[in-house]
Design a protein around this nucleic acid. Structure first.
Length: 641
RNA sequence: GCCCAUGUAGCUCAGUCGGCAGAGCGCGUCCUUGGUAAGGACGAGGUCACCGGUUCAAAUCCGGUCGUGGGCUCCA
């Protein structure tokens, strides 16, 4: 006789089922509607196939397409269908890995001939055919040795490599429509759960992500149970494209790239305004936070890089200038040179912490395939700072850095998220100092009640760090700021200070950046704001639009009063119709358009039109000036995004 | 760096089978003087990324170089 097991439903209801009951059976016992909608079952927190027997007392949850988690099942299942389609269409193709990812799935194939865009259509057609067959995904547990035999017969070398790494005696395989893959699962019950899918792109990849190993062909796709969701997903991709900083940067004349300097932006006057405003804001903040500013040479002898260790580990990414007698290199980082500012004179413990900021232009010879718009460049400007301090000052100083970062980000509407990375296996520096520093960093986080994620062993070899990510207006995360402790550089450059007993001691060093690089940060800002910058950042803050030539005189008065109060304003005196001028100003995303005609001259007013918000009506000129000045000075967000 | 795609006017892009280089926007000149997202006419503007090959003939086909875009760390 079969024994019974107790199943607890999410609402707390307890039911009894025979041992070996499946998710399908439980769902049916609850209701036919649920049985039909069910995609998977969560057993003690682990996802199971609906056909997999449950063997012990447990809490369960039946998942339908309403649950986010079930999406990854659909994606993963679709990747199997795609792999089947590919192998049917292109015999001889070997399968490798095909996981679900953030918004879909991919599968990597080893194939003689790379796929083309036309192939994608063929593969999609074949997949549609397979899916319409309503084939069940069936799980089978088999002996590892049997699996090895099976995949050997199929010539699936990559699966054999995976099998050789699995230590269990048994492995699971999944079959749909006579096509079988080694897979941990779980899967949706049947291909019919895949209601809509799309293959998105073909890309190259490497087996195990290792460029020294076999080059593979990767196909990305996504799929949904609800066709509407696919539509929404594709729409989101379109929207992200509209925000692309490369597109907006061109339209708003912020920067340009030229073949003559791959990976290095040419900053156009409008983009330069962004840089200047950010620098200005940064410097205000740094002054308040007790920083001093320095500037170090861009081109230095290689002996510096030998001393810092970069020559051994970083040389491939450095631009080297060999002018005959001496080899120089363009600095890829500011830190080694910063130590020369510190050691320019004897430091007392009373002087610490010393906070040295540097807006430093750096060059890194990134491989050509890594470049991308402002996000990955060869020349960039870092908002760097190096803080020299006593070990006992770590908590307070790191707290200060985090406060600075948080304040900074709030100005842009970014929510920071913190990551605490601890000592990696390969680490240099005094182990005692590592322990103390990690405790100090943790207490800095705790003292400010900051939620953070622990990234164990993810610190730099020279010290633990706190990384800070922000989420932008459409929910994407960006890693921008970092606060890193360094025990190695002070050692290498023999930095010291005189302590209260007149003894030389070694300081600790903090590297910190708030927005990382101006280039990347501006790229993120462009996409975050969709180019609709808050007024304080907008390259042109207002444009005066006279209705006709008759109003040009008054328009000039308006224009000059704004100029005189420091507003970046244009006067559009062309003989165009007002509608055309407004259209162009809207396209250039200028925050304020000031229309002036007969009525405005009579009343000494301006008609204010706000970007994306439309006509705001008349307002005395003085009032408008006061308001825009306030908005700019307070660096207010405009909430247009 | 590697795989795929791609490069035509300042910008966005057409260019079929290899047969005289195109459009819209922008720019210049002139006309027009207007009330909240494009007024009109005329005109200038090209080493079809670069180098080589095939051909009577190349933007178009082939090879190479350079640039750009996507991907190459989401673990059966």
């Amino acid at each position: 006789m079969k024994e019974d097991i107790n199943i607890t439903l999410p609402d707390g209801t307890k039911t009894t089922h025979p041992k070996g009951v499946t998710g399908n059976e439980i769902a049916s016992s609850i209701g036919p509607g649920l049985a039909k909608a069910a995609l998977s079952i969560k057993v003690n927190g682990e996802l199971y196939d609906l056909t997999r027997p449950i063997l012990e007392d447990t809490k369960i949850e039946i998942l339908t397409d309403k649950n986010e988690e079930s999406k990854s099942l659909i994606w993963h299942s679709t990747s199997h269908v795609m792999a089947q389609a590919v192998q049917e269409l292109f015999p001889g193709t070997k399968v490798t890995l095909g996981p679900s990812i953030a918004d879909g799935f991919y599968y990597d194939f080893d194939t003689e001939k790379p796929f083309t865009t036309d192939d994608l259509e063929k593969i999609e057609a074949k997949m549609t055919e397979i899916i319409s067959g309503d084939h069940a995904f069936t799980r089978k547990t088999i002996q590892r040795d049997d699996a090895i035999k099976m995949f050997k017969e199929k010539g699936e070398d990559y699966k054999l490599e995976i099998l050789s790494e699995i230590k269990d005696d048994t492995v699971s395989i999944y079959t749909q429509n006579d096509w079988t893959d080694l897979c941990r699962g779980p899967h949706v019950p049947s291909t019919s759960a895949i209601k809509s899918f799309k293959l998105l792109k073909i890309a190259g990849s490497y087996w195990r992500g290792d460029e020294k190993r076999q080059q593979l062909q990767r196909i990305y796709g996504t799929s949904y149970h609800n066709p509407k969701e696919l539509e929404q997903h594709l729409k989101r991709l379109e929207e992200a494209k509209l925000r692309d900083h490369r597109k907006i940067g061109k339209e708003l004349e912020l920067f340009a790239f030229h073949d003559i300097a791959p990976g290095s932006p040419f900053w156009l006057p409008n983009g330069m305004i962004l840089i200047r405003e950010l620098e200005k804001y940064l410097r205000e903040k740094l002054d308040d936070a007790g920083y001093v500013e320095a500037s170090t040479p861009m081109l230095v002898k290689k002996s510096l890089w030998e001393k810092s260790g970069h020559w051994d580990y970083y040389r491939d990414s450095m631009f080297i200038v060999d002018e005959g007698e001496e080899v120089y290199a363009l600095k890829p980082m500011n830190c080694p040179e910063s130590t020369y500012i510190y050691s320019a004179k004897t430091r007392s413990y009373r002087d610490l912490p010393i906070r040295i900021a540097e807006i430093g232009r750096l060059h890194r010879n990134e491989v050509s395939g890594a470049l991308g718009g402002l996000f990955r460049v060869r020349q960039f400007t870092m908002d760097d700072a190096h803080i020299y301090l006593l070990p006992s000052q770590i908590t307070e100083e790191v707290s200060g850095c985090m406060k600075l970062v948080t304040e900074f980000y709030s100005t842009f509407g970014f929510e920071p998220k913190y990551f605490f990375a601890t000592k990696p296996d390969k680490a240099l520096g005094d182990p005692d100092l590592w322990v103390k520093a990690e405790v100090a960093l943790k207490s800095a986080l705790d003292s400010q009640n900051i939620d953070y994620e622990l990234k164990e062993k993810d610190g730099a070899f020279y010290g633990p760090k706190i990384d800070i990510q922000v989420k932008d207006a459409i929910g994407r995360s960006w890693q921008l700021a970092t606060i890193q402790l360094d025990f190695v550089l002070p050692e290498r450059f023999e930095l010291n200070f005189i302590d209260e007993h007149d003894k030389k001691q070694r300081p600790v060093m903090i590297h910190r950046a708030i927005f990382g690089s101006f280039e990347r940060f501006i790229g993120v800002l462009i996409e975050h704001f969709s180019g609709n910058f808050p007024t304080w950042l907008a390259p042109v803050q207002a444009v005066v639009i006279p209705i006709s030539e008759k109003h040009l005189e008054y328009a000039t008065i308006v224009y000059e009063s704004l100029i005189n109060t420091g507003v970046r304003v244009n006067l559009d005196s062309r003989s165009e119709k007002m509608g055309a001028k407004i259209r162009e100003s809207e396209n250039m995303k200028i925050p304020y358009m000031l229309v002036v005609g007969e009525k405005e001259i009579e009343n000494s007013t301006v008609s204010v039109r706000k970007h994306l918000a439309g006509d705001q009506g008349q307002k005395p000129l003085e009032e408008f000036i006061k308001e825009i000045r306030e908005e700019i000075t307070e660096r207010r967000l405009n909430n247009l995004n």
